[in-house]
Simulated scan of single mutants.
Amino acid sequence: MARTLLFLSSNGVGLGHLTRQLAVATRLTAGFRPVFHTMATAAQLVRAAGFPVLFHQHHLAANLPPGPWNDMLGQELLALADRLDPAAIIVDSTAIFGGYVTLLQHWAHRPRLWLRRPMWQEGNRHFLDHAGLFSDVIEPGELAAELDQGPTTGHPALKVPPVLHISPHQRQPRTIARRLLSADDDRPLVALQLGHVFGSRTADLRHRLLAALERMTVQVVDIHSPLEPPGPDPGPCTQILYPSYALSTGFDALITPSGYNSFHESLLGAVPTLFLPQAGPGMDRQDLRALWAASRGLALTLEADAGEAGIADAVQQLLAPDFSQALAAAGLAEGWTNGAFDIARLLAQRVQE
């Protein structure tokens, strides 16, 4: 009988934590049954991937006080664990909620893994006090680690290579990707993928980016995830895709925030990228990632309030042949192995011990 593994993740409208867990779940060997409990509205994407999933709304989205909400979360997780009898619990979240603490304390006899990415802001330091609740703390690799001066630096953790849901070699060939993106071969294709990280500023930012690109001799694909409705009047370049990285071989340039997944996908996949770092309470240091890549000529970066002229100039630089050639020559993926395999192997070992 398959051993059940319980994956817990936070997020809200984002996909980062959940995508990393999917990277691990899809690389487990036979004999394991991943079950997901998430606060991400992306729950339907987990179900589409073939895994059972339970959605629990974050207290901010539910407009509930943290105390009662954590009590409910803890009771729900205890009931779920009693029913599933998980062989291990895997948490991917910066915040270790009180409800998580309740579950981890009651299930201290089973392996409990914390997938804790680096690049934290100082305000999240107190969550490290909960590290003792876990049997293992695993840190997904970070290309820009040398710039990280946040709370997790020096904190004990097993470090694995960067984790990707889709590895670069798993992407579609360029000709097929272009066809699926409805792109012709006569003009460069610029992909725009903003997600929800800019909140109420997203619509204005998208408008400025599209306005700048419309003045250029390029094709544009404005990518939305299935969780991000394009609005009542979507433009002709709007496409709903997940995971879009599978078609990134068809991009000549990409404009996206520098979150963990997008950053490592772009650089390891040699996609010429303009990073728009987002900053906010509780978020990772996207600015440091973008700075690291830009300082090495591996990407460009602009503030989200940049004007149309600056956007157009940056895209022109990305489309220059020497930029993509230099990025490919950097060979960041040479010798890289997907850390998701390391985590899957460790998880199997812990369950069998």
Rank of each mutant, 00 (worst) to 15 (best):
T4D: 05
L5W: 04
L6D: 08
F7N: 07
G16K: 08
G16R: 14
V24H: 01
V24I: 12
H37E: 05
T38Q: 11
T41F: 07
A42H: 10
A42Y: 12
A43M: 04
V46A: 09
G50F: 02
P52G: 15
V53D: 13
F55M: 10
H56S: 15
H59R: 13
L64Q: 15
P65G: 11
P66G: 15
M72P: 07
L73I: 06
L77F: 13
L78V: 10
L80H: 12
A81Q: 06
D85R: 12
D85Q: 14
P86E: 03
A88C: 03
G98R: 08
G98M: 00
G99D: 01
V101Q: 12
T102L: 12
L104M: 02
Q105R: 15
H106Q: 12
W114Q: 15
W120A: 04
Q121T: 15
Q121F: 08
E122M: 06
N124D: 08
A131C: 08
F134W: 07
V137N: 08
E139P: 03
L147V: 13
Q149M: 05
T152L: 12
H155E: 08
L158M: 11
K159M: 14
P162T: 07
P162G: 10
L164Y: 04
H165F: 14
S167P: 14
P168H: 13
P168R: 06
T175Q: 09
R178C: 06
L181A: 06
P188S: 05
V190K: 04
G199C: 06
S200N: 07
D204S: 03
R208L: 00
R208P: 00
L210G: 03
R215V: 05
M216I: 08
M216P: 12
M216W: 06
Q219H: 02
L227M: 12
P232T: 14
T249V: 01
F251W: 09
F251T: 04
F251G: 02
D252E: 04
Y260P: 13
H264V: 01
A270F: 15
A270W: 15
V271T: 13
V271F: 10
V271Q: 05
V271P: 11
P272Y: 06
T273G: 10
T273E: 06
L274Q: 00
L276I: 15
Q278N: 09
M283N: 03
D287P: 11
R289Q: 07
A290P: 01
R296F: 13
G297V: 12
L298E: 11
L300G: 02
L300R: 07
T301Y: 10
E303W: 04
G307L: 06
A309G: 07
I311Y: 00
A314Q: 00
A314P: 04
Q317A: 02
L318K: 08
P321G: 09
P321I: 03
D322K: 00
F323G: 03
S324W: 05
Q325V: 06
Q325R: 05
A328D: 02
G331C: 12
G331D: 09
W336F: 10
I343Q: 14
R345N: 03
R345W: 05
L347V: 05
A348M: 12
Q349C: 01
R350L: 09
V351G: 13
E353H: 09
